[in-house]
């Protein structure tokens, strides 16, 4: 008992200050990509040719856009761009969106589901299903449950049973072999229920978008309510997405009491 207490003192208090303080991101962090139209050279296809997941979407007469729902954040496009038009913002970890369109154009994003914010603002139970995930998204979601991130201080918990879940968080491109397991898990959840696609694979199939053994992500199966881009998303990006889904991104302290009726 004494040695345990001594160890506790030695290890100290380790829960991060994010939020409200900004998260500790590595110097070389590849955050939100941006394409400066003015520096993009007409007729140049260098970035399109190196992008492994077809995340750069060209359009007639307009500058190309970057689909963060497909992007692997590998930075190959920025490395080959002759005009240095593409930049990954090393401080912008807030990548989540509430619609597929919002991943292409944040200005056109929709808002989080109002019913969810009303019912689950202070208590959200998540059931996670990996459907062809490579374990990286799973691990970096799981890491939120360690004392470094302490997810439960926000009233967010991970539940073992779909019966107790408000939200289904999917990782992976949805392998054909997991389709039934995924659909059965969703069917076993009580209504109302919401879906989170975590990582490029779950959003769009990611690098497996052309695989004959995968379903190209969640979009065509159960439309997600929250999209968290990344390969895998940084834990700060996942936590930010969850808090914005709950409408709690502005307050980091205990959840406010519901208004008196």
């Amino acid at each position: 008992m004494f040695t345990v207490l001594k160890a506790r003192l030695k290890q100290g208090y380790r829960t991060g200050k994010f939020p409200p303080a900004p998260p500790n991101l590595p110097e070389k962090f590849q955050g939100r990509p941006a394409l400066a139209a003015s520096q993009c050279r007409q007729g140049c296809r260098a970035c399109l040719e190196v992008c492994p997941s077809a995340a750069i979407v060209p359009s007639e007469g307009r500058p190309a856009r970057i689909d963060t729902g497909r992007c692997l954040f590998c930075g190959e496009c920025a490395a080959v761009c002759p005009g240095e038009a593409i930049r990954f913002d090393p401080a912008e970890y807030r990548l989540s969106a509430f619609s597929r369109q919002g991943l292409l154009d944040p200005q056109q994003d929709s808002v989080p589901p109002a019913a969810l914010q009303k019912l689950c603002r202070r208590s959200l139970s998540i059931r996670q299903v990996s459907a062809g995930g490579c374990a990286a998204c799973e691990l970096d979601f799981n890491v939120l449950n360690t004392l470094a991130w302490d997810l439960s201080r926000f009233g967010i918990s991970v539940t073992a049973s779909p019966r107790h879940a408000d939200c289904l968080l999917i990782t992976g491109p949805v392998s054909r072999n997991m389709l039934i397991g995924l659909q059965k898990t969703y069917a076993a959840m009580p209504r109302p229920k919401w879906v989170i696609a975590c990582g490029a694979c779950a959003i769009s199939g990611g690098i497996y978008r052309d695989s004959s053994e995968c379903c190209g992500g969640m979009e065509e199966i159960i439309k997600p309510d929250l999209y968290i881009p990344g390969c895998p998303p940084h834990p700060a990006s996942i936590l930010d997405g969850l808090l914005r889904l709950l409408g709690r991104d502005r307050d980091a302290g205990p959840a406010p009491l519901p208004p008196k009726s």
């Binding site: 492994p52 190959e76 459907a131 490579c134 690098i207 695989s211 053994e213 995968c214």
Partner: peptide, 26 residues
């Protein structure tokens, strides 16, 4: 359950997809 058809996607490479595919094998 996690079969993604990885080995089927590699012949014909190496191409721009190969490295990220290999990185996500596990």
């Amino acid at each position: 359950y996690q079969h993604r058809g990885l080995e089927k996607m590699l012949p014909g490479g190496p191409d721009r997809r190969t490295l990220p595919l290999i990185a996500t094998a596990s």
